[in-house]
Amino acid sequence: MKVTLNRTAFTQQLQTVQRAISTKTTMPILTGVKIDLANNGLTLTGSNADISIESFLSSDDEKAKMNIESTGSIVLQARFFNEIIRRLPEDHVTFEVLDNNQVEITSGKANFLVNGLDSESYPHLPAVDRQREIQLPADMLNKLINETVFSVSQHESRPILTGVHFTLQNNRLLAVATDSHRLSQRTIPLENDTEEFDIVIPGKSLVELSRSLTDEEDTVKISIMENQVLFETETMKFYSRLLEGKYPDTDRLIPSSFNTEIEFDVSGLLSAIERASLLSHESRNNIVRLQITENSVVLHGNSPEVGKVEEDLKYEKVSGDPLEISFNPDYMKDALRAFGNTTIRICFISAVRPFTLEPTEGQGDFLQLITPVRTN
């Protein structure tokens, strides 16, 4: 195997697969990156117990400026290899596999000789089942992940809640995440008939997937297998294991009637919550209090050690019963950031029941739910 190519183009592919490579693994070969060189281009593979990423750099790619002299494959220690490539002096780099799996890396006057591993020992990626497959615009998938994944549980005591629940029914894709204190739910209508599914994808996998998707990608093909899901673009294949178990029925958590409703501009409310949380973070409780009357809406933050803050909030309109409710400001900030610059409606039942946040336009497609904090 011998190839010369542009170092920048190669580094971008390497950084993508690096997301899947862990130094903590029971299989030493998985601390390496697999390099496959064929006549049509270069494929890099990285994997750990949860995700596998395959990235392809085409020989036709003008940025790659690839010159293939002989094909082949090798596995190289990812951490050292990445550092070597980053620090090479020239724009171009040449790799050549010598005897005994040794690899010569040359760039300008720099020359490295590193030990590789036989690629035959590298685990095979799962076979793809095309029976259950959907396609989404890459930006829509990214948005879907960013609107839900922050609500997954960070505790392994209930492993199923560390993932996002995806179901497809009646051509509607539903994504739900909850840590039992808050919930994020997004619905996307799909045009093509597809076999229904019910899966839970680890939140950590989705975060890495979101980071791996670039602006250049248009469409993501999603294929569901027995215990794996594959996200595929023109240049990348991203595999993730699925979580086992039954996701709780979250429909029953979402109220259908309310006693108090209020509309806010998101950016104004978010700024006020950020100011109030400056003090609440200094308190052991980390809560802020919202006081709603017919004529005013006031936000209170308090820390016995530091002081207190009180702010009259600007709102669009308010209706229903007066209410005083306390909640975790960090949950509220996460929820508000997911909406972007828009107007939202917040609906309350009482001071002790979960409340919902929805955009004033397109209601039903995107919903956040937060459980209040009981105070004496």
Rank of each mutant, 00 (worst) to 15 (best):
T250F: 07
E156C: 04
T26L: 10
P137S: 11
A110G: 11
D179C: 02
T194V: 15
A276F: 05
R241I: 12
G163D: 04
N67R: 14
A38S: 14
D218Y: 00
R284E: 15
G307S: 10
C347P: 02
P89W: 06
V103G: 06
E96G: 09
V200W: 00
F366D: 10
R182V: 00
E361K: 14
V200S: 05
A110Y: 11
L242D: 07
Y122A: 07
E83I: 13
E54K: 08
F80D: 11
I35V: 13
N82W: 01
Q368L: 06
P372T: 09
I85V: 15
G307R: 03
F56C: 04
E62R: 08
T43N: 09
T375R: 15
A351C: 03
R241A: 07
N48P: 11
I35E: 05
A338Y: 04
K221T: 12
T94E: 15
S47T: 14
T148L: 09
S223I: 00
E96R: 14
I292D: 02
F339D: 04
K204Y: 02
Q102P: 10
L357C: 11
L290H: 08
N341A: 14
G245T: 11
S350L: 06
S205C: 01
K34D: 02
V309Q: 12
I370M: 08
D118L: 10
R241C: 10
L76G: 09
E310W: 09
S55K: 12
E196F: 02
T187P: 04
S184W: 07
I287F: 07
L242I: 06
R337P: 03
R158M: 15
A177E: 06
Q12F: 06
L42N: 02
P126H: 05
M140T: 14
N328C: 03
F150V: 05
P255M: 07
V164R: 03
E358H: 08
N111H: 12
L42S: 07
A276L: 13
